[in-house]
Simulated assay, not measured.
Amino acid sequence: MRYPSLLLAAALLGSPEILARDIATPAAKGYAGRLLATGGASSIEGSAGGGVVPWAVIAGYGTDEQWGGAAFATRVDSGDYTLTSRGIALGWRNRVEIGLARQDFGLPTLADALALPTRHFRQDIAHAKLRLAGDLVYSPWPQLSLGLQHKRQRDFLVPSLVGAVDDSGNDVYLAATKLFLGGAGGRNLLLNGVLRSSNANQTGLLGFGGDARRGRSLLGEASVAVLLDPRWAVGVEYRQKPDNLGFAREHDWKDVFVGWFPNKRVAVVAAYADLGSIATLDRQEAWYVSVQISH
């Protein structure tokens, strides 16, 4: 998908005054749980973070002595294409995250026009993430995490016919995330950067590797979010994409999102996604909605 999407949400925390007060207390340092929104939302691939770009944070609100976790459902619809993603993730001691997700990519317009044998492509994703160093809030340097996403495309006939080489592959990424209290005109600012190694076509929905490029690509991703008040965040995401298939170019993704975090149990994210050209269909634009339940 080209400028897709899908987008997401982003998490952040309370006002600088509230956070400054809380950080000074033992409870804020984990004894009473992590701060609101520090588990992020769920990406379309299941990892904690934003909608299309993972963060270095660990899913859920578990502290150094606890388990945490999240379950999510996401829907994106451009009219010509749909994407439904569902999954769960578990966090252990705010150090390790593991999870499973399933994606269902619908292409009714293209299937009807080309008489394709299927109207849906499905993909299963198992992921793991390890926090290597730092803390989102309390350390002077960013939180740094290493992530792995193992992906398997379950409807490989059409992707193989358009040049995809494999029906499974692995994405490996390094994420650095930091929350700056009062960093944007007195409001909290979150910055996130990711370096990813991948050979996935449209995140793997169209298989892995291709006739134009078989090898892996090193790709950059970024997220910026600002907290408007203790429960509302707005932001943008950008994700570079590989270009492996000769029949249709793959473009970078962009989105603009709003996240609502009424409490530590619920997060809702809405986004506008410019999908660009997807598998030969141009000017794809979509709204994205994601709901997450956390612990």
Score class of each variant (00 low, 15 high):
residue 173 Y to K: 04
residue 154 R to L: 14
residue 213 R to Q: 11
residue 191 L to M: 05
residue 159 P to R: 00
residue 213 R to L: 08
residue 212 A to G: 15
residue 156 F to L: 04
residue 194 V to G: 14
residue 205 L to I: 06
residue 153 Q to K: 00
residue 188 N to G: 09
residue 212 A to F: 06
residue 210 G to A: 06
residue 159 P to D: 04
residue 178 K to P: 06
residue 200 A to N: 15
residue 170 N to P: 02
residue 182 G to Y: 08
residue 163 G to T: 05
residue 203 T to V: 10
residue 183 G to D: 05
residue 188 N to E: 06
residue 184 A to W: 09
residue 180 F to Q: 15
residue 176 A to M: 13
residue 204 G to K: 08
residue 209 G to A: 00
residue 196 R to P: 12
residue 175 A to N: 02
residue 181 L to G: 12
residue 152 R to Q: 07
residue 202 Q to A: 10
residue 190 L to Y: 07
residue 185 G to T: 02
residue 169 G to N: 05
residue 186 G to Y: 09
residue 199 N to Q: 05
residue 196 R to A: 06
residue 199 N to C: 01
residue 186 G to F: 01
residue 179 L to G: 13
residue 185 G to A: 09
residue 196 R to E: 08
residue 165 V to A: 15
residue 178 K to Q: 02
residue 194 V to K: 10
residue 159 P to W: 03
residue 207 G to F: 04
residue 161 L to W: 03
residue 159 P to V: 01
residue 215 G to R: 09
residue 198 S to L: 01
residue 164 A to N: 10
residue 194 V to T: 12
residue 216 R to V: 04
residue 193 G to M: 08
residue 161 L to M: 11
residue 186 G to H: 11
residue 170 N to F: 05
residue 162 V to E: 15
residue 193 G to D: 13
residue 192 N to C: 03
residue 154 R to C: 06
residue 175 A to Q: 05
residue 187 R to C: 01
residue 212 A to D: 08
residue 202 Q to D: 10
residue 193 G to Q: 04
residue 208 F to R: 04
residue 177 T to C: 13
residue 202 Q to M: 03
residue 159 P to C: 01
residue 190 L to D: 05
residue 213 R to Y: 11
residue 156 F to A: 08
residue 154 R to S: 13
residue 158 V to E: 14
residue 152 R to K: 05
residue 192 N to M: 07
residue 214 R to I: 02
residue 200 A to R: 01
residue 205 L to C: 12
residue 215 G to T: 04
residue 156 F to C: 03
residue 213 R to C: 04
residue 162 V to S: 10
residue 172 V to I: 13
residue 191 L to V: 05
residue 182 G to H: 07
residue 161 L to G: 14
residue 156 F to V: 11
residue 181 L to H: 07
residue 169 G to D: 00
residue 203 T to C: 12
residue 187 R to K: 13
residue 181 L to C: 08
residue 163 G to A: 01
residue 165 V to L: 13
residue 214 R to F: 07
residue 187 R to N: 13
residue 168 S to T: 03
residue 173 Y to G: 06
residue 207 G to V: 01
residue 193 G to H: 12
residue 152 R to G: 06
residue 190 L to N: 13
residue 187 R to Q: 14
residue 153 Q to I: 03
residue 162 V to T: 11
residue 157 L to S: 15
residue 191 L to A: 07
residue 179 L to S: 14
residue 198 S to W: 00
residue 211 D to T: 04
residue 210 G to C: 00
residue 153 Q to N: 15
residue 200 A to D: 03
residue 162 V to N: 15
residue 164 A to K: 12
residue 190 L to M: 09
residue 175 A to D: 03
residue 207 G to R: 05
residue 184 A to V: 04
residue 179 L to F: 10
residue 157 L to I: 11
residue 163 G to F: 08
residue 206 L to W: 06
residue 208 F to E: 04
residue 197 S to G: 12
residue 184 A to S: 10
residue 202 Q to Y: 02
residue 195 L to T: 09
